[in-house]
Design a binder for these strands. Structure first.
Lengths: 274, 274
DNA sequence: GTTGACTCTGACACCGTGTCAGGGCTGACC
DNA sequence: GGTCAGCCCTGACACGGTGTCAGAGTCAAC
């Protein structure tokens, strides 16, 4: 018979954890002195302790370990559990690899510049959203070409929505696609709505698909000055090992036609692993 | 002014977390209605929120994020923090990769055998230990050659220790090294002691170094039948991507000369990444 | 004025582990 | 048999980031 301390040393586990395993029914001592409450273990129990540790080291929770050891699982369930765990570990590895890339990018930036920059680019998942929109074509994706095309669309869009008795439910947003020929770009000027599609006569209603990964940054000021912020985004995705996957969406968090410099816009650039 | 719900949607954060960030002083609302307690945020604050999320996504704790954002760190401290974080992530990646290998080995074993095997091999770190020991030379590492050589050593060892008035403080253990020539092996039969080295006349006292990583398994029964357990160990290290790094130590957790079949022995095989 | 959607606070839960306080038990030595 | 060091007991709190719930108050649209 071993005292809890001896057993803990042999199993290289803390006494605290042995008591915990007892309390959750994972490993009960072979004997408990009814008077003193002292726990006593046998060398034989090292086998079970080792199994507990081996399974725990795979990353199973204690509840899962207990299920495995107490044999309340059939093989299929066990296989399912391990497959799930494998998927979790793969996701964890991917996430940590990305984090490591991020940390290393920050460190490089500090070493070369002596300070911290681009600290506000965030990777997000974008949910699908329903928008009412008008479209037009611009000569290129440069903001000098985009601005004059997109700006007139919004007053017209809001006018038509109001005429149809529809109230926007979200902020305005813009997105872009390449037009068939050359550098031209289709410009979509939209606003979030909660309305059944095809119920608006003069306005298209489309369901924008979600984006699994988008690098986003907040742009402050007029959209005429968006190029600098876009460059921050471009540098971030390069430093963090991503690649742009299309054009950036723009979400007009705050917009006032009279004072463009007070605008707040979120740029959302879909990315994929490069 | 945005309500907390709007702000949460824009920042893709839960309302719960915004309240939490407020309570820990990480991101206070621009205004709080003194009557209702309602929090109100400005679009401008999205910038800080994004910074919080970006740093948090690197894996910094909220306290660290606050330190960075509130500028109470100089560049050296920030660099140190990021280096530490990098080291943590690298360790995490290594650990998760090993876990993944373990899970995959289990899955393969289940697929091929329809059940779970070798569920009791555990990777441990072995602490350094001081032992009193006698040595001899055996013809090979096979247990048929080892047994007759090592068994007489223990009675002699305990006799000499008792004569010197020394009480063992730990279980018996054995370890092995290649002798200079051919297959021969130096056999060390020892027992843990807490005594100053060179204070025993007839017994060597040596400090066994710790082992950073050892695959261990509990062998039940006579040491004559240890080969099967050793093979379990060998299969485990192969399946999990390790390599043996020397001979296994043996720790005699329970031993009785009269009934060898009731023995409990821990085999400890030093391993390294292969 | 009604009502439904929103917000408030405060609390509990998760999970594995460390640590502490306050008190009881054991075993070795005298 | 007494003493004392070292062991063990229970119960509690803490960590950290987040979800969720209950019960009550508030806002805005109709």
């Amino acid at each position: 018979m071993l005292t809890i301390g001896d057993f803990a040393r042999l199993g290289r586990v803390s006494v605290r954890m042995l008591r915990h395993y007892d309390s959750v029914g994972l490993l009960r001592p072979a004997a408990v002195d009814p008077h003193s409450g002292y726990r006593y273990y046998t060398a034989e129990q090292l086998r079970r302790l080792n199994r507990v540790i081996a399974l725990k080291d795979l990353g199973l929770t204690l509840a899962q370990v207990r299920a495995v050891l107490d044999d309340v699982l059939d093989v299929a369930e066990l296989r399912g559990m391990l497959r799930l765990r494998r998927a979790q570990l793969e996701a964890q590895l991917a996430a940590d690899t990305a984090r490591l890339a991020g940390v290393e990018a920050r460190l490089r930036a500090i070493e070369t510049e002596g300070r911290m920059t681009t600290q506000d680019v965030v990777l997000k998942e974008l949910p699908p959203v329903r928008v009412a929109e008008l479209t037009a074509v611009a000569a290129s994706y440069e903001s000098a070409d985009i601005g004059p095309v997109i700006q007139p669309l919004y007053p017209e869009l809001f006018r038509r929505l109001e005429a149809a008795g529809v109230t926007p439910t979200g902020p305005g947003l813009a997105y872009y696609e390449p037009a068939g020929d050359g550098e031209k770009v289709v410009v979509h000027a939209g606003v979030g709505v909660a309305v059944v599609p095809d119920r608006l006569p003069d306005v298209a209603v489309v369901d924008l698909p979600g984006v699994p990964a988008a690098a986003t940054v907040i742009h402050h000021g007029s959209m005429d000055e968006v190029e600098g912020t876009m460059q921050v985004l471009a540098r971030w995705i390069e430093e963090n090992g991503w690649r742009a996957d299309g054009y950036a969406r723009e979400l007009y968090v705050e917009y006032c036609a009279e004072d463009p410099s007070g605008g707040v816009t979120e740029l959302q650039l879909p990315v994929r692993r490069g």
